[in-house]
Amino acid sequence: MRKYFVGKMLRKNLPVFIFLFAAFFSISNTIYAAAESVVTDGHSQEEVKRGERFFKGLLPANREFASCVSCHNLNPVDTLNWNPSAMDLALKFVDKDFASFQASVMNPTGAKMEASHVNFKIAEEDLKTVKLYLDNLAHKGPAPAKPTYFNLILFFALGLLLTWALVELIFLHNIKWKVIPMLIFVGAFGWQVKMIVTDAIKLGRQENYAPDQPVKFSHKVHVGDNGIDCMYCHTTAENSKSAGIPAANLCMNCHVLIREGTHSGKFEIAKVVEANETGKPIEWVRIHNLPDHVFFSHAIHVGSGKLDCKQCHGPVEEMDIMRQNADLSMGWCIDCHRDTKVDFEGNGYYEHFVKLHEDLKSGAIDSVTANDIGANDCMRCHY
């Protein structure tokens, strides 16, 4: 009897419960958003919105200069934007007064920034709202990327289609030609299987992964244009499991003198200088990730195997934005071991392969691949 009463009460008042539940989360989110914004500091939401309009170039109506957002992007882009993003500016000036911000905008230093701000004119009161908008951005953070649901919708649409085809074949019999619903069923089911298999294969793989980094470091500029050797920065690649990330003091070997980049101006290099002076390391985002159950050593591949870096990392000298060049799957590694000829002769690391050395000298074989010396044994990578 009690269960019946509770169930009846829930059914009768379900809309009320749903409304209260939604209202609670709506109010909670509103309170949280307000707590993380500058609106609580005595500024109005209208001021923040006005600053956003000036930043995006919607105001003033008779503007004769480039908008802020035309250089300082709000969202990540596929190609390298050398200018600091809106979030970079927001974080840089959030703890600084308006005078510092105004001086940087209206009286820029450095050839790159002077060229970008030529003919830039904005009233002081309007610039204050821009600073307010950026401060608010620094507190709230950028808007989260909206997920895409195309594949999910397509999957369910195919499911409905094959369900209809199945019902038509078994129960309805409305279509004279049975081959039509049969083909629809096979096609929809096959496409669903293809989607599942494709996404399953991609699990844990990050081909073309290119995350935003805290500093806009271009391998194209440093390796391609300036000819810096990989080992100059990645000093442990020949002797360690990891290639290593250079500390800021190594960067300062060059940037103690070079304080302004041709493309990026002073903003990005200033981050490196600050990291060196404060001792706070730059938090680079790792690009090449392998599962925890896989062992990989740069020392074996680079130090002993004498592989060129681009064999795994691709044409780094052409990349402004560093990305993962290969999928780093097990099949990719195995194929490389089968095809790659080892720098065998005169290499002390391979002296104990006596039989292979004898075969090379006798002409029985003309080369040795990584597979020939056990590179594809399971225990080499999984132990």
Results as ranks from 00 to 15, higher is better:
residue 253 N to I: 10
residue 313 H to P: 02
residue 137 L to H: 04
residue 21 F to D: 02
residue 22 A to D: 05
residue 266 K to R: 14
residue 149 Y to L: 11
residue 55 F to W: 01
residue 152 L to V: 12
residue 44 S to M: 07
residue 286 R to D: 14
residue 355 K to R: 09
residue 68 C to K: 01
residue 373 I to S: 05
residue 381 C to W: 02
residue 119 N to G: 07
residue 3 K to N: 14
residue 50 R to I: 09
residue 266 K to L: 10
residue 245 I to R: 06
residue 334 I to E: 11
residue 41 D to R: 09
residue 284 W to A: 04
residue 14 L to W: 12
residue 41 D to L: 15
residue 337 H to K: 06
residue 306 K to E: 08
residue 319 M to F: 09
residue 272 V to R: 03
residue 5 F to V: 15
residue 277 E to T: 11
residue 128 K to F: 06
residue 140 K to I: 01
residue 155 F to M: 13
residue 65 F to K: 06
residue 18 I to R: 02
residue 173 H to S: 09
residue 179 V to M: 11
residue 180 I to F: 08
residue 357 H to N: 01
residue 195 M to F: 11
residue 87 M to W: 06
residue 197 V to K: 08
residue 250 L to G: 03
residue 285 V to C: 01
residue 341 K to R: 12
residue 203 L to H: 05
residue 327 D to M: 02
residue 206 Q to V: 00
residue 202 K to W: 00
residue 191 W to K: 15
residue 168 E to G: 05
residue 103 A to K: 14
residue 255 H to L: 03
residue 5 F to L: 15
residue 98 F to V: 03
residue 281 P to E: 09
residue 126 D to K: 04
residue 183 L to F: 11
residue 94 V to Q: 15
residue 29 N to Y: 13
residue 225 D to K: 14
residue 75 N to C: 03
residue 182 M to V: 08
residue 374 G to K: 06
residue 341 K to N: 13
residue 241 K to R: 10
residue 203 L to R: 11
residue 261 G to D: 09
residue 210 A to N: 13
residue 206 Q to K: 13
residue 115 A to P: 00
residue 172 L to M: 08
residue 109 T to K: 15
residue 373 I to W: 04
residue 316 V to H: 01
residue 197 V to T: 09
residue 266 K to W: 02
residue 112 K to F: 13
residue 214 P to S: 06
residue 215 V to S: 04
residue 165 A to I: 01
residue 338 R to G: 08
residue 354 V to S: 01
residue 170 I to Q: 07
residue 233 C to H: 01
residue 199 D to F: 10
residue 257 L to F: 11
residue 254 C to K: 04
residue 139 H to A: 14
residue 131 K to W: 13
residue 55 F to A: 00
residue 178 K to S: 11
residue 72 H to W: 02
residue 81 N to S: 12
residue 241 K to C: 02
residue 342 V to N: 05
residue 275 A to R: 05
residue 310 K to S: 12
residue 71 C to H: 04
residue 147 P to I: 05
residue 156 F to G: 05
residue 290 L to N: 06
residue 266 K to E: 13
residue 137 L to T: 07
residue 208 N to S: 12
residue 17 F to E: 01
residue 365 I to H: 03
residue 214 P to D: 04
residue 119 N to D: 15
residue 206 Q to A: 12
residue 103 A to Y: 05
residue 321 I to G: 01
residue 369 T to E: 02
residue 365 I to A: 03
residue 369 T to S: 12
residue 291 P to H: 07
residue 380 R to N: 13
residue 380 R to E: 11
residue 166 L to T: 09
residue 10 L to E: 00
residue 30 T to W: 12
residue 107 N to C: 07
residue 26 S to A: 12
residue 290 L to S: 02
residue 328 L to N: 11
residue 45 Q to E: 14
residue 329 S to N: 03
residue 325 N to D: 10
residue 81 N to I: 09
residue 32 Y to P: 00
residue 178 K to V: 07
residue 260 E to Q: 04
residue 52 E to K: 11
residue 274 E to P: 00
residue 246 P to Q: 04
residue 333 C to V: 12
residue 280 K to P: 00
residue 197 V to A: 14
residue 255 H to T: 01
residue 294 V to W: 12
residue 339 D to Y: 11
residue 54 F to E: 03
residue 266 K to G: 02
